[in-house]
Design a protein around this nucleic acid. Structure first.
Lengths: 247, 247
DNA sequence: GTCTATATGGAGATAGAC
DNA sequence: GTCTATCTCCATATAGAC
């Protein structure tokens, strides 16, 4: 199990430094010179080990993904066994989905912290998001969604996908830890307080799923009135004159 | 009202081109040459009109923010009047917060579409997020949160801030329209279908707020048992051996 | 307000010695 | 596996003509 145990070889040091810098400033905000200088190695090593900047980025993103997915899958199977012969609660499912991530971001060390900030960047990027997130996480996500569907058997699948979409948005903004919420709340809460997120995200999302389920059921029972029912008069309100033109 | 009515002057054309490109690839992924070439003007004009690249970025971000905030504030006041002497429903408050944004992203034209993708980028950026989001949106957000607190009088303020945090994460990932959810759902839903988001986000978030409220109430009534209550056995589960080290 | 021309620095990539 | 040296290209910024 133990290798040389000295300081990590150049390849790993490049990955660590790249992870930290990509997380802070994105793919284009960092040069290979920044990265290799932080890693204490020569620029040319990136070409040797990875092939180029983009390939390095992919390697950074992929490195920790499999570890996480294995762990999350184990946790998912665990709660399914515990819930037998029924299905786990929505809270338990969402918890199994988010706990390994939040736990590592909170206490996994700075490398993990950077990694999750990088995930926040990638998930919200039109350029990198679909390819990288799908490649590394969709097979796991599909399993979670399957369990959510078992737990909400009468809910149309679209609702589950929308509910997941909102969940991943809330989760990845959390990972970014921008500190905006600290200022907004006058330091009443802190973006770095992931234990508070861990306690709240599962109930919040479960409540959201139940609301979507109720909405879909109501709509199915009286499809005619459904369009006018929900948010009252403001639903189809016209907007005033456009500001800067939409060109 | 009508100015020259011909093609917009250089300054505006730079803003439009910059908006589109910054939205796609972020601040560092775009050069002033890319922008001015797309705008059909000379590179030097950026210096003349804005001072530099970063100042141009700020100008792009600020341009549409005030329009939106005025509109959202009007809508908020409208629903408050309608609800008198009570307070608006959670659904109505969240709807007023999100409707002007989703409506413009859906039907405001490509400029607005790009703008919201840029907001997604900025909101999740540790570098730009806190400064730019706070500067342009926090005063409005504070008003919304005040109304949410009126609507949830017995709920501790922290819960409202966390609920808002999750909301803005879900909303801005929606703006990014990365298309990841299309693939995941096998095209059952589409990231570009903002009308579906408009119907679902307010109930989802309202359900989330209610769940946080219930959780806080339960915790207040029996603070002793609270730590062990929620997500069952998995809550304090230990993680297996770390993967890549957290250095 | 707009363009030409240019200053100055840094980017990614790679051939080849050790 | 690692470093030196260098190629080629592109970045932002600005002085000054029109």
């Amino acid at each position: 199990m133990a290798r040389k145990s000295a300081s990590p070889p150049g390849r790993e040091r490049i990955l660590d430094a790249a992870e930290k810098l990509f997380a802070k400033r994105g793919f284009y905000g960092v040069s290979l010179r920044d990265i290799t200088q932080a890693a204490g190695v020569d620029v040319a090593l990136v070409g040797y080990h990875f092939g180029g900047k983009r390939a390095l980025f992919d390697a950074v993103f992929g490195r920790r993904a499999e570890v996480l997915n294995r762990e999350r899958l184990e946790l998912l199977n665990e709660i399914r066994l515990q819930a037998r012969p029924g299905t786990p609660s929505l809270e338990a499912i969402v918890h199994a989905f988010t706990y390994p991530l939040l736990e590592r971001s909170a206490r996994g060390g700075p490398g993990w912290k950077s990694y999750f900030a990088l995930v926040a960047y990638v998930n919200n990027s039109p350029e990198f998001g679909p390819a990288l997130m799908s490649q590394h996480f969709d097979s796991l996500v599909a399993r979670f969604i399957a369990v959510l569907r078992e737990a909400l058997p009468d809910v149309p699948p679209q609702e589950i996908y929308w509910g997941y979409h909102f969940l991943t948005g809330a989760l990845t903004l959390t990972f970014a830890e921008t500190g905006r919420i600290d200022k907004l709340s006058e330091s009443l809460i802190r973006a770095t307080d992931l234990d508070s997120v861990l306690e709240r995200l599962a109930p919040y999302v479960a409540g959201g799923f139940r609301a979507l389920a109720a909405r879909a059921a109501a709509k199915a029972s009286s499809p005619r009135a459904a369009r006018r029912r929900r948010p009252g008069k403001t639903a189809s309100r016209k907007l005033p004159a456009p500001g800067p033109q939409g060109s």
